[in-house]
């Protein structure tokens, strides 16, 4: 069964499954221990290396399990972890499991343009105002009209010394917003890249001052980015393209890495994201099989009551019109053939002498005849007329 069609074969909204979008992706860490090698960390020795790949490799390793930053001996104690997801995803949650006491301040950012620009998703700090210039999130949750980057409490250390930072995209969004109907929420959850900035280590008796017990290193084991491949409701899966890049397996007449536009011939109405109520499939232009290309005309779309705005281009088989639905000049409709028939339009074939022109009636095929001439193609003298020797007046009254 095709998830993008209902039982009757009609298009319906479909979305890829929830996955860990970071799994197997490369993580860029601004600091990783082992270069130069120390007794505890040697980047060139797999048994003592703590590379950033451990953050997204699903724990398939025989060596250490945790990434570890270099020893940081003086402020600023910032370390950045960046993971490119390869394409746009709609985020559900982001989490990072720390192997040591979690930092006291972390900023979570996202990019929607493959790392060219960044915006914050949330902050996690025991000193929101001091570290990020923001008030701590109210206990009642977000109150703004739309989603925003709020400052949440810093992740708590567990009894075993580890910790977990967990962020749900809903945490920054006021209740009641619906993904289908809220473009703002759609924008909020969309990301191509995720960045975590570990900005301040946790120290005993933390007061917010930067005087940590130095040197210090961050350590974490599992970065998860839970989300769905963004396909705007027009695909149920994402697959690697020939270049290995992840792209949506688009349906509903759409195309593009996110199914974000209509396929070339499917432009009878504007592209729209699918919703639970309406698939908003892109519709093929209606060209009666006589054209392979069409363009969208917004004016015509409005005039049609927002039903059809496609205009066929290069109508073939001697057809013409917005839908290639009538015959071009010099041709007429053969009533014995379907409009979609390649030979639906026949040449007028007006007689070169008997007809007054070359264009016939497009419905009946009747050519315009000179006086005294008759017949569909004007090739005979009418009753009471006989052929003359003049090509200008080929039929004259019989004396």
């Amino acid at each position: 069964a095709d998830p993008c069609k209902d039982d009757g074969g009609a298009p319906r909204s479909c979305v890829p499954g929830l996955v860990n979008a970071a799994l197997g992706r490369e993580v860029l860490a601004s600091s990783t221990c082992g270069r130069p090698a120390t007794r505890a960390c040697d980047a060139s020795d797999p048994r003592r290396a703590h590379p950033a790949t451990l953050l997204t490799s699903a724990g398939v390793t025989t060596g250490p399990l945790c990434w570890r930053s270099d020893l940081l001996s003086r402020a600023p104690l910032n370390v950045t972890l960046t993971v490119a997801l390869g394409k746009a995803f709609e985020l559900v949650f982001v989490s990072l499991r720390f192997c040591s006491v979690p930092p006291a301040s972390v900023a979570l950012l996202k990019s929607q343009d493959h790392g060219r620009s960044w915006v914050p998703l949330g902050f996690f700090s025991s000193h929101c105002r001091q570290d990020y210039g923001r008030l701590p999130v109210p206990t009642t949750g977000p109150v703004g009209p739309g989603p925003e980057a709020l400052c949440f409490p810093a992740p708590q250390a567990q009894p075993d010394g580890s910790g977990l930072l967990a962020f749900s995209v809903q945490d920054g969004s006021p209740p009641g917003l619906d993904l289908d109907s809220s473009p703002v929420l759609q924008d909020w959850v969309t990301a191509t890249d995720i960045r975590m900035m570990l900005t301040r280590p946790s120290v005993p008796g933390d007061t917010g001052a930067s005087a940590a017990t130095l040197p210090y290193s961050y350590s974490a084991a599992e970065l998860q980015v839970g989300g769905r491949c963004k396909c705007n409701g027009h695909a149920s899966q994402c697959l690697p393209d020939p270049q290995g890049r992840l792209v949506c397996d688009c349906r509903h007449g759409t195309e593009g890495s996110d199914c974000g536009r209509c396929k070339p011939f499917y432009c009878d109405r504007p592209w729209q994201r699918a919703t639970a109520q309406e698939a908003h499939a892109c519709l093929a232009c209606s060209c009666n099989g006589h054209a392979r290309r069409c363009r969208f005309n917004m004016e015509l779309y409005r005039l049609s009551g927002r039903r059809s705005g496609g205009v066929c281009l290069n109508c073939r088989h001697n057809t013409a019109g917005r839908h290639c639905h009538y015959c071009r000049e010099g041709f007429y409709r053969d009533p014995g053939r379907a409009l979609s028939d390649r030979r639906a339009c026949r040449a007028c074939d007006c007689h070169p002498v008997g007809a007054a022109g070359k264009t016939c009636n497009q419905t009946t095929g009747q050519c315009p005849c000179k006086d005294g001439v008759t017949g569909l193609t004007c090739n005979r003298c009418a009753p009471g007329f006989q052929q003359s020797r003049s090509p200008v007046a080929p039929c004259v009254k019989t004396p």
């Binding site: 070169p352 002498v353 008759t374 005979r380 003298c381 009753p383 020797r389 003049s390 090509p391 080929p394």
Partner: peptide
């Protein structure tokens, strides 16, 4: 009544060379 089609050979093209070229 079946009317014969116009016989092109019967026309006098002397003054209508242009027309004949079209034909």
């Amino acid at each position: 009544e079946v009317m014969p089609t116009l016989d092109m050979t019967l026309f006098d093209w002397t003054d209508y060379e242009d027309l004949k070229l079209e034909v």
